[in-house]
Design a protein around this nucleic acid. Structure first.
Lengths: 345, 345
DNA sequence: ATGAAAGCGCTAACAT
DNA sequence: ATGTTAGCGCTTTCAT
């Protein structure tokens, strides 16, 4: 076999051609006759030649590599949709022949982004979980590093993003519960610092408003997206003097906690209390597998990951012009966790 | 702010120094007086200078990047310890200031490894889930790309690895059950193509042999490491004319399935039937959280991930000589899933 | 149709 | 203590 993968110079020497001709032949440049092209290609194959990525990226100014910057914890916590996003990105880069550089960080993300940008280690970057007013967007624009955001922010800056259709999904879920006669609904939302949480809260209120209703201020709970907080929140609200008749959860993790709390209160999901949820399609946490099965707005966070990478690569390669904005669709899947609201006791 | 991150040439020009002096000053080479060093460093800081990683790696022959090659599915299945390994690797590279290049693949891994090696995109690579006779090891040795294997293989080739102490863990678990009087034990193992599965089977038999016993040939089941197969296997074996008194599971996923099967048979874990398991410390799947809590040999697959990356980096930097072999320790944690074997009916 | 030469931005051996 | 020079391996004008 090819022991030491040859370089261009050696190859050119062997063929009695110049480096430039060999280089062009390998990339099928116009102006290289088929005969020499074939000769070069077969010689390269025989020698096991593959271009040196370091040299190539230096000369070209592109590394065919995208970066993903994320806080280290996102890989450490069990209840996260991050891995599914990562799976989607992985699929996309595989199909586009790109590499993915993982940039986990602890502490100062801005420093990481600055380093990635000026070190030219990647051609572009994906950032996740934008805040309502996220400083990273202005920073990346200033650094002139192509980037795509998973989610949206409220900043004025132009930027590309892929987001779930939070607005419509939550309005839909809320409307469903209202249709079933529920009025005393508790929405277990995420932490208020994230933009999508605000969007979801607004959608919840909008659905009420569409019927001339206004939910009480404490209808929306802003807590983290875990089973534990879902459980605690539900336990607390079930002790209210007037018990909620339905829960709307922002994630399957929270919904799990709600199911557990209801069980402990001796209440049956889909009979005594209704539950709906937004389902990102996280591996191993399907709303369909809940007992009883959970009515949810289903989307594929993995597809969102694919889109993120594909859009970023298109942006890098100049295949698309300005900022791309993509809203991923969802589907309302009716299952067994919703019943007509019981008449007030 | 620094608009366009300056390069070395510009910086040298500004300072009235040569590129090499600036370069040396920035890396605190001996022979650069403190005064000029400070002058250079502060100028670099002011200019927002960061070395171009592409140029640097070309000149240096090192990219300060390690690769992780894995089949795309490993990110897609919910029941996997892969993400925990990834979390460990991420922690390690963060602390050592390395980058991690993810190389998911579909199909031919050899091609991916060849490409990574000859394109010089990474300084070294981590491979996972070695087969009993794994061809990747010989290939990587031939390609002269530093690498570390997560797990062991039976090949003659020299190679570095980090592995769980499968032999002792499974002997220990088996001995524990034997101590409790169990003789009719079913070991739910992994798929036979992997080396660790063979090692575990041998350890199981060794524990029996140490008491002059021999387990029946069908005592060990070679199935995949999922809840579903754990369930199916247990259901099948519980219908045997002579019911097993204990199950030994290779993973918490399988153990979950076993718990479910026992529940369906109306059998109580830790009373009617005993269960033990090896616990990799996968996020969200702790043996401690089983109900009843599950006796297990506990190890940290995440720490293994950290070791993998640290060893690889040491290898790359020449800080250690030949192949490094590291066996990760485990701890036997006694919980509520084991009881004395009932006298035969 | 092919070659020569410059340059991507950095490091390091070799001066001085 | 600092500068000069020669690469690292590739792509890409610019010649011919």
């Amino acid at each position: 076999m090819h022991k030491n993968a040859a370089d261009l110079k050696t190859l050119a020497l062997q063929l009695g051609l110049s480096q430039s001709t060999v280089s062009r032949a390998l990339r099928a440049h116009p102006g290289i006759p088929e005969t020499t092209r074939l000769r070069v290609v077969s010689a390269a194959e025989a020698a096991g030649y593959r271009p040196n990525a370091r040299a190539r990226s230096l000369a070209l100014g592109r590394a065919e590599t995208i970066g993903l910057s994320f806080p280290l914890e996102r890989l450490q916590l069990p209840e996260t949709n991050f891995v599914d996003v990562l799976a989607g990105i992985s699929t996309a880069i595989t199909s586009r022949n790109y590499n993915l550089l993982l940039s986990p960080f602890q502490g100062d993300e801005a420093a990481v982004l600055r380093r990635l940008a000026s070190s030219k280690a990647v051609d572009g970057i994906i950032i996740t979980r934008p805040l309502v007013d996220d400083p990273r967007i202005a920073l990346l624009n200033e650094l002139r590093l192509p980037f795509v955001v998973h989610g949206r922010s409220e900043v004025e800056e132009p930027y590309s993003f892929v987001d779930t259709d939070n607005d419509n999904a939550f309005e839909r879920l809320t409307t469903l519960l209202l249709d079933y006669g529920h009025r005393h609904i508790v929405a277990i939302n995420g932490l208020a610092q994230f933009r999508y949480v605000a969007a979801r809260a607004a959608s919840f209120r909008r659905a009420f408003a569409a019927r001339g209703l206004t939910p009480p201020p404490d209808a929306i709970e802003f807590v983290s997206m875990t089973e534990a907080t879902g459980y605690e929140t539900a336990m607390r609200r079930l002790s209210d003097t007037k018990r909620p008749t339905a829960f709307l959860c922002g994630s399957v993790f929270q919904a799990r906690g709600v199911y557990r709390a209801l069980g402990e209160h001796g209440l049956k999901v889909g009979i005594d209390v209704s539950v709906v949820c937004h389902d990102d399609g996280v591996r191993g946490f399907s709303a369909a597998d809940f007992v009883p099965s959970l009515t949810a707005t289903a989307t594929s966070i993995r597809s969102a990951g694919e889109e993120l990478a594909l859009i970023l690569i298109d942006l890098i390669e100049g295949k698309v012009p300005g900022p791309i904005r993509k809203i991923m669709p969802f589907e309302l899947v009716l299952r067994d966790s919703v019943a007509l609201a019981r008449p007030e006791p």
